[in-house]
Design a protein around this nucleic acid. Structure first.
Length: 463
RNA sequence: GUCCCCUUCGUCUAUCGGUUAGGACACCAGGUUUUCAUCCUGGAAAGAGCGGUUCGAUUCCGCUAGGGGAUGCCA
């Protein structure tokens, strides 16, 4: 059997990390089994679906390299096929017309809850003579669910789930306006797309139970299901903005790397022994549904930060520099050749400090700025008249350095402090302020080395 | 209300009946560092509760509690 998975978001808002994780699991499962991963946009709710949301989904998946096979399927374009199947079910006696009004349905539910019974449609039109149909009421079409026995779902993650059929009602497959409902459309599309494995959120579990009856009525094979646990916010409630969970594009904007997002989301609910840093190659090699946990996981931004620092740190220098130059280019600024050279020399210290690429770019600014550079408040305070005299005095020592490397710079600074009988910090802090405009920076020797002798002296002589 | 699911350090998790219950993030302490960060070393930190089954339960079963999901002419 060919493995075919799918990701089927509805374009009604942002692409959330829960959705991305679902997409990732489907993608990985397909990749690790030489199967196909398909994308279907469930845009049948015309009131809530937007073009922006579609773009967000597509761009998000593209950013993360979760590439899909074949064309994107837009569910809205397949409505006639869905109704066709709905009518077929009606004609074959597996479905029936129901004339109950929304008010009547509401009353049924309230009554059921009052009597401690499952709230559901009571099936009154299931066998009723259509002669009794009220005039002026357009019927919906409902599936005939079995009344007796139970419905069993064999789920790859949840195990065997059994629910008594008395809990499940005859749900609507075609609305009174003639359009198919989600419950029907999904089944038809999954069938037509030859989906072999449906990996989706746990919130779909009862849907799956009910959808099985459509498959059965049509004599179609039921795909294999795996319902993955939901992602919760830090307080255990439904994940929302207030937990720091944003649309996937926001993580890109905030400077999180693709590797970070994939690694983080993969480890949220799935594990491979003690492995924490997992490359996409290994993820494909190792991914399996059995190792997906059953309990919901909480979203933890600290973990994401830490993974991101790691991935920035292990990135190649040229790659990191490209990120910086790209972000300057975005602002319409081009980094001059000499500055680029300085940046390359100082990239190591930058990498180890940055937690996001946004931080990285901000941090690198002092290497790129023209002298005189801007000073932050703290560095202004450090640069007292006295300190300015001191650092200028140091220039005479600096000029003596013959071999321009970190070690000789260190020795040079130390010998100056020795001769002046001052602590290293006395010189280092003002020097840092003058050279970087900040009170916090990469190692001073590294900064001086990266700037070069001429630029270092220029920056000091401004004061 | 009804049905379904979940429950190991603060967080993500390992363990597939016998372990000093392991790792990672975060946290704390120390070291390295002129600063901050990195890095290194160490530390504190967990089986929801109660009953079974068993020679032995975190692991299997039941109940309770807590949490989550579903319960739409939304998807």
């Amino acid at each position: 059997m060919e493995i075919v998975t799918r990701f089927a978001p509805s374009p009604t808002g942002h692409l959330h990390i829960g959705g991305v994780r679902t997409a990732l699991f489907n993608w990985l499962y397909a990749k690790s089994n030489n199967g196909k991963f398909k994308l279907r946009i469930e845009d049948t709710d015309l009131k809530r679906s937007t073009e922006d949301a579609k773009k967000t989904i597509i761009n998000g998946l593209k950013w993360l390299n979760l590439n899909w096979d074949d064309e994107i399927v837009y569910q809205s374009k397949r409505l006639s096929r869905h109704t066709e199947i709905g009518i077929k079910l009606l004609e074959s006696g597996h479905a029936y017309k129901c004339y109950s009004t929304p008010e009547e349905l509401k009353a049924m539910r309230e009554e059921a809850i009052k009597n401690k019974l499952p709230p559901k449609y009571n099936g009154c039109w299931r066998e009723r003579d259509l002669q009794l149909a009220p005039s002026g009421v357009k019927p919906v079409i409902r599936i005939k669910s079995p009344i007796k026995g139970k419905t069993i779902l064999k789920d790859l993650i949840q195990g065997t789930i059994e629910v008594s059929n008395s809990e499940l009602d005859d749900f609507i497959i075609i609305r009174s306006d003639g359009t198919p409902t989600y419950m029907l459309s999904v089944v038809v599309d999954d069938y037509d797309m030859k989906i072999s494995h449906i990996i989706r959120g746990h919130d779909h579990l009862t849907n799956t139970l009910r959808q099985q009856h459509i498959y059965n009525a049509l004599g179609w094979n039921i795909p294999i299901h795996a319902h993955i646990p939901l992602i919760h916010g830090s307080d255990g409630s439904k994940l929302s903005k207030r937990h720091g969970a944003l649309g996937i594009e926001a993580y890109n904007e905030q400077g999180f790397l693709v590797n970070t997002m994939l690694n983080y989301l993969l480890r949220l609910g799935w594990s491979h022994g003690d492995e924490e840093i997992i490359s996409i190659e290994n993820a494909i090699k190792w991914f399996n549904i059995e190792s997906i946990g059953k309990s919901p996981a909480k979203f933890d931004i600290e973990r994401l930060n830490s993974l991101n620092s790691h991935y920035i740190n292990v990135m190649g220098d040229s790659e990191v520099i490209k990120i910086i130059t790209d972000s300057y280019a975005k602002k319409g600024e081009i980094i001059q050749k000499d500055k680029l050279h300085i940046l390359k020399n100082g990239i190591k210290g930058l990498k180890s400090r940055a937690r996001t690429t946004v931080e990285l770019t901000n941090m690198s600014s002092f290497y790129i700025e023209e002298t005189p550079i801007s000073l932050d408040e703290k560095s202004k305070k450090i640069l007292t008249d006295q300190n300015c005299i001191l650092i200028k005095e140091y220039v005479t020592y600096l000029e003596l350095i013959k071999n321009w490397n970190e070690k000789s710079i260190e020795e040079n600074i130390k010998s100056f402090c020795n001769d002046k009988k001052i602590n290293l910090g006395k010189l280092a802090q003002p020097l840092r302020a003058a050279l970087t405009g900040k009170s916090v920076s990469p190692g001073l020797y590294e900064v001086i080395l990266a700037l070069g002798k001429v630029e270092t002296i220029n920056r000091i002589n401004v004061f």
